[in-house]
């Protein structure tokens, strides 16, 4: 029977929420395809008490097997340079047809390298569809939402490595106690050393459920309107590269290929044309609301809802209605 492996990142001494979401989708895929679902749990050597709790959590969330793989001490960031051997030992023991990681900063560092090592196809942050013939279809947006690539898993002759967007998948439940496999691989010293740490001024954007972004068409005196709309929506403010170059917002709040990646449910793009540079920083399952005075702007091809008009007129009206009708 084919193996599906999910790499579990720890948040303190518990499996992280994005990893449990990835495990949940792994459970659904494994049940659909009749595969065995293994959770790869990095552990200190020798295993400590909290790992019993983590194993129980992973059982309750649908793992058939928990692979305890020696890793570095808790507290080091998840990266290939710290946890690569932890994952490699597990994929050597249980070669996966599908390896799933949460698309966290750590997961995105580990996943492509694991794919290269496995000779696998690599599909970052696809949407997962269950085909009519018992097949699995992975679709991802490319060229900044303008096109999609579609990979049918049964047409791929090699393993597949995917990352799943945090916040987009529900955890699953399991009743059976997972079988525990303890790997006796020797822990490797981390290749990386953390020498300093500072607060990230734009970090609130990473987990924001609502993001309002100012594009190149927002005038400096209109930026406060964008901030007011974000506040009325309980969301965060971002800027496109074109807007950031004109001095709007702060560089830490730039969204796009060279800025932050965001994965909100609702993304309000104000006077942004919808360039690939910009939209490749927005998770493909966000619902986009586009406000733009150009009815032919490319953003209207990918938005869920569109309003044609001036930011100075529409944005304050939108904020006012939200405030007035707030429950």
């Amino acid at each position: 029977m084919a193996n599906i492996l999910v790499y579990i990142e720890m948040d303190g001494d518990r499996p992280s929420v994005p990893s449990l979401e990835a495990l949940g989708e792994g459970r659904r895929i494994a049940s659909y395809l009749g595969a065995t679902l293994g959770a790869v749990l990095p552990c200190a050597t020798p295993p400590r008490y909290h790992e019993d709790d983590a194993i129980a959590v992973l059982s309750r969330h649908g793992a058939d097997k928990v692979v305890l793989s020696p890793g570095p001490d808790l507290g080091l960031p998840t990266l290939h340079a710290t946890h690569g051997h932890t994952l490699a030992a597990a994929t050597d023991r249980m070669p996966p047809a599908l390896l799933i990681l949460a698309a966290t900063p750590g997961g995105r560092d580990l996943a492509p390298r694991a794919a290269a090592r496995l000779g696998a196809a690599y599909v970052p942050e696809p949407s997962v569809e269950y085909g009519p013939r018992g097949d699995l279809v992975l679709t991802r947006s490319v060229y900044g939402w303008a096109h999609r690539r579609r990979l049918a898993a049964d047409e791929c002759e090699r393993p597949i490595v995917v990352t799943l967007t945090p916040g987009s998948y529900a955890p699953a439940r399991g009743d059976e106690e997972a079988e525990v496999i303890v790997l006796d691989a020797k822990p490797q010293p981390p290749l990386v050393e953390e020498t300093a740490r500072a607060r990230d001024a734009g970090a609130a954007l990473d987990d924001a459920r609502v993001v309002v972004v100012a594009g190149a068409g927002v005038a400096p005196e209109e930026f406060a309107l964008i901030e007011e709309l974000a506040s009325a929506l309980g969301g965060e403010v971002g800027v496109t590269r074109a807007a950031a170059r004109r001095g709007l917002g702060s560089p830490e709040r730039e969204v796009g290929a060279g800025g932050r990646r965001v994965a909100p449910r609702l993304y309000v793009a104000c006077a942004a044309s919808g360039s690939p540079e910009h939209l490749s920083g927005v998770s493909a399952d966000a619902h986009i609301v586009a406000i733009n005075n150009d009815p032919h702007a490319p953003i209207f091809r990918v938005a869920t809802y569109g309003l044609v008009g001036e930011v100075a007129e529409l944005v304050p009206r939108l904020s006012a209605i939200l405030r007035e009708t707030a429950s």
Partner: peptide, 10 residues
């Protein structure tokens, strides 16, 4: 950037 921090790694 990671989890609210800018980490410096060597």
């Amino acid at each position: 950037r990671e989890r609210g921090m800018v980490r410096t790694l060597k």
